[in-house]
């Protein structure tokens, strides 16, 4: 699409949100400072500030006008000094934040590895055989729709306190995503490439190694991403109900101690933790694994250009974000694997 096109018609916006976007092209030749102020980077910086202001305002309202609206409302200072203490290793909880997250991460890692192993086998079977698919299908859907609360409770009852319960919960929450993605990967097998290998008389082992496995990779990766995001949520619930340590247990510790600032501070640590993984680990890994796929980056660029109201604005904003839409939404299916089922990912 050409620049003139974009300028003439701001596309979706003119029907959906007329006054927010339509005015942008008219001001395209505005001062650079104005342009930066209107950029998405500015919005991004504004977000935490606005949140903080709303928070302070809420405290104001609670203390002066409406005192019975809440039980407690901690101040930002309380929360941030709590977080600072945690991050420097001073804590009233039995373990500091690094040990705590370390414990949880280990459980998550073990659970994910098991889920990936079993899920891959079942997914391969379901993709290759209609009968195996008929055998498992409804149960995969049923397990997928099960609230992790149920798993967490069941596992804490079944396995008592310790590592086993949380790990099994991670396996059970993660496994349907792995199965569905692998099945989708098998169903989308690149038959043209198999035919090619056949025409050249390539051996079976080589075909598996160079065609089948690489073609499954994007699906496996999407599976890992979902299993991670969902397994993490399941793990937290499991640790709350059946743990004696770990991140979930610790936030429950602060909850039971009635330290609201502790709960909120810990929740913010959760957010930081998840973002670190999502943005750094998975985006890096994805870049490494799929370096052969230049079109991914190309697509992102195109998307971003489409995002931008005008070409000038696009270049002016030094918003280096790979944070296009798809990335922001957390776990992203590398190739739209699993469609419906997989996207039903973000359960409580």
């Amino acid at each position: 699409m050409s620049a003139t096109d974009t300028r003439r018609d701001t596309g979706p916006a003119d029907t959906a949100a007329p006054d927010t976007v339509d005015e942008l092209p008219r001001r395209r030749r505005s001062h650079p400072v104005v342009r930066v102020l209107r950029s998405s980077l500015a919005g991004r910086i504004a977000f935490p500030i606005v949140c903080l202001l709303v928070w302070l305002l809420a405290i104001r309202i609670v203390t002066s006008i409406w005192p019975f609206a809440v039980d407690v409302l901690p101040t930002p200072t309380q929360v941030f000094s709590f977080m600072w203490d945690e991050l420097t290793g001073e804590t009233l909880a039995p373990r500091n934040v690094y040990e705590t997250f370390g414990i949880s991460l280990r459980r998550l890692g073990i659970g994910m590895a098991i889920a990936m192993a079993i899920g891959t086998v079942i997914g391969l079977g379901m993709g290759l055989s209609k009968r195996v698919n008929a055998f498992f299908n409804d149960w995969v859907v049923a397990i997928l729709a099960m609230p992790n609360l149920a798993w967490a409770l069941f596992c804490s009852l079944a396995f008592g306190f310790g590592d086993v319960g949380p790990i099994v919960t991670v396996v059970l929450t993660g496994i349907p995503f792995v199965i569905i993605n692998v099945r989708e990967g098998v169903r989308n097998a690149p038959t043209d490439l198999y035919d090619m290998a056949r025409a050249f008389g390539v051996s079976r082992a080589d075909t598996i190694r160079h065609v089948l496995l690489p073609s499954l990779m994007p699906f496996m990766f999407a599976a890992a991403r979902y299993a991670f995001a969902l397994g993490w949520k399941g793990l937290v619930v499991a640790e709350v109900f059946g743990g004696e340590d770990g991140a979930g247990w610790t936030i429950k510790f602060w909850y039971d101690a009635h330290r609201a600032y502790g709960v909120i501070g810990y929740a913010l640590l959760f957010v930081v933790f998840a973002l670190l993984f999502e943005k750094f680990l998975f985006d890096r890994l994805s870049g490494y694994f799929f370096r052969w796929r230049p079109e991914v980056n190309a697509a992102d660029v195109v998307e971003q250009r489409f995002d931008a109201p005008g070409v000038a604005t696009a270049t002016a904003t030094a918003d280096s974000g790979n944070g296009t839409h798809a990335t922001t939404t957390g776990p992203k299916p590398e190739r739209g694997a699993g469609g419906d089922e997989t996207r039903r990912s973000h359960d409580g």
Binding site: M196, F200, H210, P214, W292
Partner: peptide
């Protein structure tokens, strides 16, 4: 005989 094939679309392994 040994055979070779050139396809309509190149059919290269994108990951190699």
């Amino acid at each position: 005989a040994a055979k070779g094939y050139v396809f309509q679309a190149a059919r290269l392994l994108p990951w190699r």
